[in-house]
Amino acid sequence: MSTAIKIEEKLFQNRYRVDAGRPHIAIKDPDVCAHQCKSQQCTVCCPAGCYTAEGNGAIALITDGCLECGTCRVICTEHRNVAWEYPRGGYGILFKFG
């Protein structure tokens, strides 16, 4: 089945007010992702594709398209390596329909 889809195309339909330079989610210790986490499930399970595996084992996190669901934090059970807060009031995803 050919269902190749770029997540960017989906997120493009959404409305965001990005808090430039103040991401609301952070990786606590990048070394843990790179060296201790084998599954790196955040790169697959994040519904907005905010986490990408870099070639060298490191994880890159860009929160601009975040849907604020909490998945990345909840699935990081082995290492609890995601520092997760809500964006500042008024910032982040702004659902038009929800």
Binding site: K10, L11, F97
Partner: peptide, 9 residues
């Protein structure tokens, strides 16, 4: 016409 994509726990 798809106009929004959402995720939620």
């Amino acid at each position: 016409e798809m106009k929004e994509y959402c995720a939620h726990l």
